[in-house]
């Protein structure tokens, strides 16, 4: 019993400490963001890295997601109505509002997020972070802010790409497998899709970008204890990011629905 309490107690303390340190990171990110010049060079380097790292995987992931969606709706509707109706509408709505942003964020978390956590973690355990302090800058300013900004600038762009490639995937399957004429497929989309539908997914991208980048940077700067510690915190960064993506996806959707952006 006391052992159980001990475990619960230490778990709680750890959680409190993590939250506290996380809050500190957010606070000093806000501080340096408004206080000092932004390291645009670093930001640009990170943007290119995230973009190049994640672009092919993102495009491929959503291409296949779009293809699967078209296949599923096509076959379901054919068995229900004898005809694959609304394939374009369903594929495009599912991709643009939900799957595009979520899949992209997941891929970016696994690809770029992991490399951010590993890189900063390695810098932490080899005292390079301390060295930044003694050389007149601050890890938040030099490492965290450029990465957060890069995520914020690149992730929505990747989401747009993934929207297009998902719809393209749906189109290919609709055309080849179900012989849906292009004009029907595109009209299904154009007639129903509105800017706010697109915005619904696009806004989520920003939420994910902030969450993933902060989590991965946090896990990096709090890494301890050599190569093993870096490995551990990198894994944690990715897992935590993924959980955060799903939880925030729900919350963001709820807020967007309440605001009428659906």
């Amino acid at each position: 019993m006391t052992a159980l309490l001990d475990v619960a107690g230490s778990w709680f303390l750890e959680l409190a400490e993590t939250l506290g340190r996380g809050a500190m990171l957010v606070r000093s990110t806000a501080f340096w963001l408004f206080r000092a010049r932004i390291e645009w060079r670093q930001t640009l380097i990170q943007m290119v890295r995230i973009g190049v790292d994640s672009f092919p995987v993102t495009a491929a992931t959503s291409l296949f997601t779009g293809m699967v969606l078209a296949l599923e709706t096509g076959s379901s509707f054919r068995s229900l109505f004898n005809e694959p109706l609304f394939t374009g509408t369903i594929v495009s709505f599912a991709i643009v509002k939900e799957l595009g942003p979520v899949m992209t964020a997941l891929v970016v978390a696994g690809r770029a997020g992991a490399s951010v956590a590993a890189e900063i973690g390695t810098m932490q355990v080899t005292e390079q972070i301390d060295a930044l302090y003694t050389l007149g800058t601050d890890p938040v300013r030099y490492l965290v802010i450029p990465r957060v900004l890069a995520f914020i600038l690149v992730l929505p762009f990747l989401v747009v790409i993934s929207d297009f490639s998902g719809i393209l995937g749906g189109y290919l399957v609709a055309r080849v497998k179900y012989q849906i004429p292009p004009s029907v497929f595109w009209h299904d989309i154009i007639d129903t899709m509105r800017v706010r539908h697109f915005m619904h997914g696009y806004i989520k991208a920003y939420v994910f970008a902030v969450a993933v980048s902060l989590i991965c940077c946090y896990k990096g700067v709090t890494a301890r204890g050599g190569a093993e510690g870096v490995g551990k915190s990198t894994t944690q960064a990715v897992v935590l990011s993924m959980v955060a993506i799903f939880v925030l996806d729900y919350l963001a959707t709820a807020v967007l629905v309440a605001l009428g952006i659906t």
Partner: peptide
């Protein structure tokens, strides 16, 4: 008081780390 002051404090120092701590990138 704030991080800018801390940064000002630190910048008076040069620090040679025992393990070097060079930026390997």
């Amino acid at each position: 008081g704030n991080e800018a002051e801390v940064a000002d404090y630190r910048r008076r120092f040069g620090y040679l780390f025992q393990e070097g701590a060079l930026f390997d990138s």
